[in-house]
Nucleic acid binder design. Structure first.
Lengths: 220, 220
DNA sequence: TAGATTGTTAATCGATTAACAATC
DNA sequence: TAGATTGTTAATCGATTAACAATC
């Protein structure tokens, strides 16, 4: 085990920035790749190089949560993976609701990448009578009216919101009323929700704009 | 027009952070909403409030690129929209290639949100003989072999990469060889590409992890 | 042992906020 | 005019990097 004094900082004391948590996910992704490749040990320098960060940054990020390495040796991939999973909360399974089974929602239902990381889409919701009651990719589609019931029954805390922008605020409020505490929002609107609700916004048009800005500013 | 001395900083002098450019996109999104609602004027305070930023931050971000407001009055929505579009490069149309017509790729082909912002998916690429030669959502699907040809013919600089993670690095290198300069990467890998290539990564599993971290750290 | 690498403290750098004269 | 709000400079805050003793 890593270090005898395993006084990891309690997970709730550290007010840690969004950027740190994002990098933690990237470390996890690289570490998993190394482990799959049969590599047992790595270092802050190597990990940083793979991702374009400094070695100091890697160590500092991890230091927010405890001591995970061995001076003179580095980090054991499998151990660090387990530690980061625990920090991120992905050492447990999270049942997820997907709301809005349109084009994008359907693709997300079929997306295999989530389950690896500990996320299980267990219920989908829509208003379209043609699909309510069916199963898509093995996941039952319910009428949105049933959200309170199902969220409670399946102890769901997380939702993926893939409804049209015009409906997003209203649907989000229903999710919160149903007991959802975290939302991955694909709608191109800023949701106004109570402070205790976590919202991560993914706006694909905005990501494309970052590209066009880069093309435009670094003119060749 | 805004200010008589329109000495906007030249778009290439300002080395501006990723965070600033992202907020610019958010300002643009809110301004468009206001304009659609028939509101003609706003202020840094109001704009900030809508998005959870300080008024000073809004003004500082804009100050990177010029002077767009009227002291005592605020900003004219339509003018500021036009200015930000110009800064972002979305005052012009960008032809885009979509590579990898699987589950997610197909959804992205059907996604209407891009074209509003000035992006036009004009060609899709895949290896699957069953779909090569067909049109999906009105967009022709080509064999990946044809990428060089088509990219040149259609003057494409931007690509959306939606292939399996295992293929992403190899396919990305082909895109670069074909002349692509910016990639929106949905594959869960860090691409190793020349410095002059801009890559924006969107990893949905990582976004979900941000949620589970929030659930786990702010335990109720 | 010599070489490598951690965790951590101090120094630097950059980003955000506060404050205010200028302006409408 | 009085009130509102900009653009900008200076002050503060936070994040990144450098440096190094401790450790294997």
């Amino acid at each position: 085990m890593a270090k005898s004094k395993d006084n990891k900082k309690s997970s709730s004391d550290s007010r840690v920035s969004k950027a740190v948590v994002n990098r933690l996910s990237l470390y996890l992704r690289e570490l998993s790749r190394l482990e799959r490749a049969g590599i047992e040990t790595t270092s802050s320098t190597k990990l940083g190089q793979m991702l374009g960060f400094s070695d100091a940054q890697v160590r500092k990020d991890l230091a927010n949560f405890g001591q995970f390495g061995y001076p003179g040796v580095g980090y054991r991939c499998s151990e660090l993976i387990a530690s980061i999973r625990q920090i991120m909360g992905t050492d447990q399974r999270w049942p997820v609701a997907l709301v809005g089974v349109g084009n994008l929602g359907r693709a997300l239902l079929g997306y295999r990448g989530f389950s690896h990381q500990g996320f299980n889409t267990v219920a989908a919701f829509d208003l379209d009578a043609k699909i309510v009651g069916t199963e898509i990719e093995g996941i039952p589609v319910f009428n949105l009216e049933e959200i309170d019931h199902i969220v409670e029954q399946k102890s769901i805390q997380l939702a993926i919101l893939a409804v049209p922008a015009t409906a997003a605020q209203e649907v989000a409020e229903r999710l919160v009323a149903a007991g959802i505490r975290g939302i991955l929002n694909f709608a191109a609107v800023t949701l106004k929700l109570p402070d205790h609700i976590t919202v991560i916004g993914v706006d694909l048009a905005i990501e494309m704009e970052q590209l066009s800005f880069a093309m435009t500013s670094r003119m060749p």
